[in-house]
């Protein structure tokens, strides 16, 4: 049986190997991804983001219980940052989810950001696609909500969940910094802690002040105590309501178009950049370019134009 066929039939070993190749940027992974792409687009993708320690993995773990009771197969992609100093990473999201490790219907994959060009969102999307092709019905993508990359990933989900916790002091500051726009659903977790009600009031105010969304969806707030599973059922049904709303008012179609465009641009960008950088390296031009720029013998705008022109006239 071909590798693609094995993955389509849900073969964990084959899928896992491909994911490794994707992550390591092994060129042969592209061939398989090409074969799998037409079979993707069936999974419902849920993004979950928020500060470190806010309880994202615990929430994912508890949501999986509900999805599994409904006999839905689940894929989880948990992204943690790579240390910029060592290039290494400790990926600990599984600690909260290991209960599901022996459930054949749950596939968990930890990913490090690796911090290279277009790295994070590209491989995350590719890995989500592999899970989609495997037939996972629900795919949860957990990312730490700090950088632009994370925001982009969440943006490509069907439903994006933003997790906050009470008592951080600068909560509302954090909320204002661009995270409001990406949340379809907000969760205040650790409601056993003081300040949950105040946080909810503040958040509600911020949401009311925000620009009305084009799709008419008003993001709900759920209060949870994930460690005890409290509020998780409501959260899952909130997701289902959002899904329904997406499907009813044609937002889904627009979202899918946006996603397709984002995927295409992402791949275009990485491929073009990788190609050009390789070319410059092969021709040994890096040093001259940098020297010329530093000494002001050339300007970067003209140099880029020059290199583009070289490439575009090739083969004509």
């Amino acid at each position: 049986m071909t590798l693609a066929k094995r993955i389509l039939e849900g073969d964990i070993r084959a899928a896992s190997r491909l994911m490794r190749d994707i992550d390591d940027r092994v060129p042969s992974a592209l061939g398989l991804l090409k074969e799998l792409y037409p079979k993707t687009g069936r999974a419902y993708i849920i993004g979950i983001t928020g500060p470190p320690g806010s309880g994202k993995s615990t929430i994912v773990d508890k949501m999986v219980d509900i999805f599994r009771k409904e006999e839905k197969s689940v894929g989880i992609v948990a992204v943690d940052p790579t240390s910029p100093f060592t290039g290494g990473a400790i990926l600990g999201d599984r600690i909260r989810m290991q209960r599901h490790a022996t459930d054949e219907g749950v596939f968990i994959r930890s990913l490090a950001t690796r911090g290279c060009l277009g790295g994070l969102s590209r491989s995350t999307q590719d890995i989500v696609n592999v899970m989609d092709a495997m037939g996972k019905e629900i795919i949860l993508v957990e990312t730490v909500g700090v950088g632009q990359d994370e925001v982009e990933i969440v943006n490509t989900a069907h439903t994006s969940i933003v997790v906050l916790v009470p008592g951080l002091g600068d909560d509302i500051q954090a909320i204002k910094a661009g995270i409001i726009e990406i949340g379809d659903i907000f969760v205040i977790n650790k409601c056993d802690r003081e300040g949950a009600d105040k946080m909810e009031r503040d958040l509600r105010l911020v949401l009311e002040m925000a620009r009305k969304r084009e799709d008419g969806w008003e993001p709900p707030i759920f209060k949870t105590e994930a460690i005890l599973g409290k509020g998780i059922f409501e959260l899952v049904y909130g997701i289902y309501r959002h899904r329904q709303a997406l499907e009813q008012n044609r937002t889904m179609e627009r979202k899918l178009r946006e996603r397709a465009k984002a995927t295409f641009l992402e791949i275009l960008e990485t491929e073009v950049m990788t190609h050009l950088i390789e070319k410059l390296e092969k021709e040994g031009r890096w040093e001259t370019i940098i020297d010329d720029l530093v000494n002001r013998r050339a300007d970067p705008y003209s140099l880029v134009e020059e290199i583009m022109a070289e490439e575009l006239t090739k083969g004509h």
Partner: peptide, 11 residues
């Protein structure tokens, strides 16, 4: 991790 590896820790 400090040696540059990706470590999955399961608890």
């Amino acid at each position: 991790r400090d040696a540059g590896m990706e470590v999955i820790y399961t608890g």
